[in-house]
Design a protein around this nucleic acid. Structure first.
Length: 938
RNA sequence: GCCGACUUAGCUCAGUGGUAGAGCGCACGCUUCACACGCGUGAUGUCGCAAGUUCAAAUCUUGCAGUCGGCACCA
């Protein structure tokens, strides 16, 4: 079989996903093992309005890597997918469309028609994100796809609301809240972002005290709110104002009189020490107002224009126009003391960036006390959720919970879960799951449902269990039993408070168990200059463009390689290098397939013991008394077997690559188990490229391309193709398309290679058994021997390059070495000659070469020389040797210094001291030899 | 204001007590029968600064500087 010269991802990406999906490979039901352990991940539901960005691609890749890995291990895996209705974003988007297409506002068409439009919009555009998820290759179970406004999830929301209300945790109250005048809705504290404005002003306004000439000066950044002042407060200990406490102020621009009150809240040394109090427009003033029983005068409409309470001169003015006018009037009255430049920090709507106005308003709140304690207790007693990385997230999470305030959950929107509360004509409230129940409770049909909807995060908070069937009416399902708690949540740090904490709380409260064990917090993908990607800066990198350019697999493994929890700057060059890696895998496989006649994928070629077990099984009882772990077992029963069996007859290179493979597999499983994705990718990259391609393939090339058909050649072919097959399995969680594409091209791949949990499924690498790695196949001796061969070849290559020996010139290699090294080099003579591009390998106890030779030393006291009659440039060779001596000298000096330090020798672990001594002795030997070589040239 | 992270080769980043690493880039050489998205060879770092702990510090402690982030906020 001959493959294209380079990997072209397009075809693989367009066919395999469809096949996997059609074969239900993603659903947990594919697992035939009734005792299989479950593994589950729920996706952080992307906004239904959303488009995939690089952050999603990163997060999704990590979840899919874990899911595919566990699935291949035989776990009953569920990667649950779904989208979020995303209240404000979606409503804004549809509102914008309505304005553009029909020049209408939502109010023009009414709630029902508008909501219908949003649903239509959702149905039309809502699958953008799910298409993109398919493109990413995510092995999510589409049969369990959820939407936060699904019927069952909505029932869950209502049940949770009703229960919390009945238990007294949810209440309706009139409090200072964050109001977005543009979106015209209340926002929770978490949806408000502070921004510093450097060119702000601090205005000093003078208020005349009634029946006196005294004026009291207050400082404010928002002069327009003075129209709602209902007091001026001073510190009770402030001697400047002692006489004024209790006096009355004639509030300018209004004909109202307000009191001067004393309150500890006021700081003596800030501003003028006197504070205007506007209980309806400032959270602190509100608190003071409550303490002093002050009137709460709301002077603003919900679009941040002034209302009639502000007086006829101001009514209808925008807050900023009103500010200017108030200042002008104060100036006219001679009551404007001064205006200072002042850096102000203003709250902004996270979504539309409008300055948020603190307003007194009737809203629904959740008192979080009980649920907060449940979550805190879980962390304190079990350390759950376990954050990766633990620092700083565990502490930030805990601290936030400890300081948790009430959650504002109502939103003045139409898109979302409408609050299940009804009012009768007298304003009495009836909270119930359905209107019928509310009617029953109220004893009247004349009820109006609260027009507001719930914060989007209220439904997201239930996501870990509402998606598995819990809705309050139904509290036990097979899925809940099997998949809850989920194993790990993968998400960004921006929603630890908004989402992670709330899932922890609601899950504990309503299901009585944690929602997940682990939480992986990934970093943020920044642009190439280290800036956050944003629409306004237009510096975003579209993952779909990257997929098109470099392929999905290259993008996935690039992202996984970057996942250390730290932010990182996006570089196309990095994907390019992983695209090259994909191509390398493609070509290595291509090469093996060009030489695959007579080969078969068969694990026993990598592990003869497995064959022993098979033979034992076949032969049956007569062999039972023999120890199958005994390495010479086969020799004992059939001596000729070991000699002739090419599976047993392994070269150093074979043993070495098998050892390296098993080490890699073990380390890879460990890295994935501890969420060290970068480590995992590095292991795969270097095993495959450096060990397998650069060395193993080159070492066995001659044998497997041999024209002579014999069992040894076919065994070598089977071995290398089996190594490819096993490597593809290790790579599959990261590069699903490429590995599936290649796997099917390998000879005799079938569902027999599946994990035993998937015996009957159609053949696919995604269900193949994930290699665990066999520690007993690690062969340190073979690795050391191979290291000697690699060192020899590398040194020859170094001489060739530095002495400018043409590739076409093939010199002889002379080696002086001890018995063991002699054997190793002789056994691999053909490979050494090929890879070093030499003609003869002359091995002796000592070197017997002409002066005109280039020389080098090897670890273990061996020497090598390449005679270069007529070719050698003595000056160059001298320089080369001097360079090597200099390098060794630097290291030797440091070691000598360390070893002559008594403290080190006495206090450091003996094995460490011994290690350094051995190294020093090696350096001394090599230096000595190099110096002799150098002298002979001078 | 409080909390925290980061600072390592030209660039992007790994590395958490024992001889400084990768990819890209750079230099030199290669139509070596899988791959130039390749092969071989090489150069490049007082690991932000200062002090401390230790036989030993990129790694632990403290301080400083710079960058970034989270939380809170004084009118």
């Amino acid at each position: 079989m001959e493959l294209e010269k380079a990997y072209n991802p397009t075809e693989a990406e367009s066919t395999h996903y469809k096949k996997w999906e059609a074969n239900s490979c993603f659903a947990p039901e594919i697992n035939e093992n009734p005792n299989a352990e479950a593994y589950s991940i729920v996706i952080p539901p992307p906004n239904v309005t959303g488009n995939l960005h690089m952050g999603h691609a990163l997060q999704h890749t990590l979840m899919d890597v874990l899911t595919r890995w566990k699935r291949m291990q035989g776990y009953k895996t569920l990667f649950l997918v779904g989208v979020d209705h995303a209240g404000i974003s979606t409503q804004l988007m549809v509102t914008r469309q309505l304005k553009k297409e029909e020049h209408k506002t939502p109010q023009d068409i009414g709630r029902e028609a508008f909501t219908e439009k949003v649903w239509a919009w959702k149905n039309q555009y809502g699958d953008t994100i799910t298409k993109q998820i398919r493109r990413e290759g995510l092995s999510v179970d589409w049969s369990r796809e959820r939407f936060t406004m699904d019927e069952s999830l909505s029932i869950a929301v209502r049940n949770v609301f009703v229960q919390l209300y009945e238990e007294g945790w949810i209440y309706r109250g009139n409090r200072i809240i964050n109001w977005c005048p543009k979106d015209k809705t209340v926002l929770s504290d978490l949806e408000v972002k502070e921004e510093t404005k450097k060119d702000g002003k601090l205005y000093y306004l003078q208020y005349p005290v009634k029946d006196s000439d005294v004026k009291i000066t207050v400082a404010t950044t928002r002069p327009e709110t003075m129209l709602g002042d209902t007091a001026v407060a001073v510190n009770p200990d402030d001697e400047r104002y002692t006489d004024l406490i209790g006096k009355t102020i004639e509030l300018p621009l209004t004909n109202r009189e307000i009191k001067i009150i004393a309150d500890e809240y006021v700081e003596l040394d800030f501003g003028t020490g006197a504070v205007k109090i506007t209980p309806a427009h400032d959270p602190n003033d509100y608190e003071i107002g409550m303490r002093h029983n002050l009137e709460q005068l709301n002077v603003m409409n919900n679009d941040a224009t002034m209302n009639s309470n502000a007086g006829a001169d101001f009514e209808g003015l925008d807050r900023y126009a009103a500010r200017e006018k108030v200042v002008e009037k104060f100036e006219e009255l001679g009551l404007l003391e001064k205006i200072d430049d002042y850096e102000v920090v203003l709250p902004h709507c996270e979504r539309c960036k409008t300055v948020v106005e603190p307003l007194l308003s009737d809203q629904w709140f959740v008192n979080m006390s009980e649920m907060r304690d449940l979550a805190l207790n879980l962390m304190r007693t079990e350390g759950v959720p376990h954050f990766s990385p633990q620092v700083p997230h565990e502490k930030v999470y805990t601290t936030w919970l400890e300081n948790l305030k009430d959650w504002t959950i109502s939103r003045q929107l139409w898109w979302g879960h409408q609050i299940p509360a009804w009012y009768d004509e007298d304003g009495n409230v009836f909270v119930a799951k359905t209107e019928e129940e509310a009617i029953a409770k109220a004893g009247t049909k004349n009820l109006t449902q609260d027009p507001d909807v719930l914060d989007t995060w209220f439904s997201s908070a239930l996501w870990s269990f509402s998606t598995l069937g819990w809705n309050g009416d139904t509290t036990e399902t097979e899925d809940l039993k099997t998949f809850h708690p989920t194993n790990v949540l993968v998400t960004g740090r921006d929603i630890i408070f908004l989402w992670v904490s709330r899932m922890a709380m609601t899950s504990l409260k309503f299901v009585g168990e944690k929602p997940f064990d682990d939480v992986i917090i990934h970093g943020t993908v920044l642009d190439k200059n280290g800036q956050r990607m944003s629409k306004t800066k237009n510096n975003g990198v579209d993952p779909l463009d990257v997929f098109d350019k470099y392929g999905v697999d290259a993008t996935r493994i690039t992202l996984a390689d970057s996942a250390t929890g730290a932010d990182f700057a996006w570089r196309d060059e990095k994907v390019e290098s992983f695209r090259n890696f994909a191509n390398k895998i493609w070509n290595a496989t291509r090469f093996c397939l060009m030489n695959s006649e007579g080969a078969q994928v068969d694990e026993t070629f990598l592990n003869p013991k497995k064959e022993v077990r098979q033979i034992v099984k076949t032969l049956g009882s007569e062999l039972r008394e023999l120890d199958e772990e005994d390495e010479e077992f086969l020799d004992k029963i059939v001596p000729e077997f070991a000699e002739d069996n090419p599976k047993e007859n392994l070269s150093i290179a074979d043993k070495w690559i098998i050892s390296r493979f098993n080490k890699t597999a073990i380390a890879l499983n460990k890295a994935l188990g501890t969420y060290q994705f970068h480590e995992a990718v590095q292991l795969l990259y270097h095993f495959f490229w450096d060990d397998f391609c650069d060395w193993y393939i080159e070492l066995v090339k001659d044998e497997i391309t041999s024209e002579n058909i014999n069992t040894a050649r076919d065994a070598a072919r089977s071995r290398i193709i089996t190594l490819i097959e096993q490597s593809l399995r290790l790579l599959h969680p990261f590069m699903p398309f490429l590995t599936e594409e290649l796997w099917h091209k390998l000879p005799e791949t079938s569902n027999a290679l599946h994990n035993s949990a998937y015996k009957n499924a159609d053949a696919t690498i995604m269900l193949a058994d994930f290699p665990k790695g066999d520690a007993s196949m690690i062969d340190e001796k073979a690795e050391a021997e191979m290291q000697a061969i690699i060192e020899l070849i590398s040194k020859v290559r170094n001489i060739r390059a530095e002495m400018n020996i043409k590739p076409s010139d093939k010199p002889a290699i002379h080696i002086a070495a001890n018995g063991d090294l002699q054997r190793i080099f002789r056994e691999n003579e053909a490979q050494i000659l090929k890879l070093a591009r030499a003609t003869d390998l002359i091995i002796n106890e000592s070197l017997d070469v002409p002066k005109a030779s280039a020389k080098a030393v090897l670890t273990g006291g061996a020497e090598l020389a390449i005679p270069l009659e007529g070719l050698i440039d003595f000056d160059k060779e001298i320089e080369r040797l001097e360079n090597q001596i200099a390098k060794l000298d630097v290291e030797g000096e440091r070691l000598e210094k360390q070893l002559s330090n008594k403290n080190f020798v006495e206090k450091a672990p003996p094995e460490k001291v011994e290690e350094l001594r051995a190294r020093l002795s090696e350096i001394e030997n090599q230096t000595k030899t190099l110096n002799e070589n150098l002298k002979s040239l001078q």
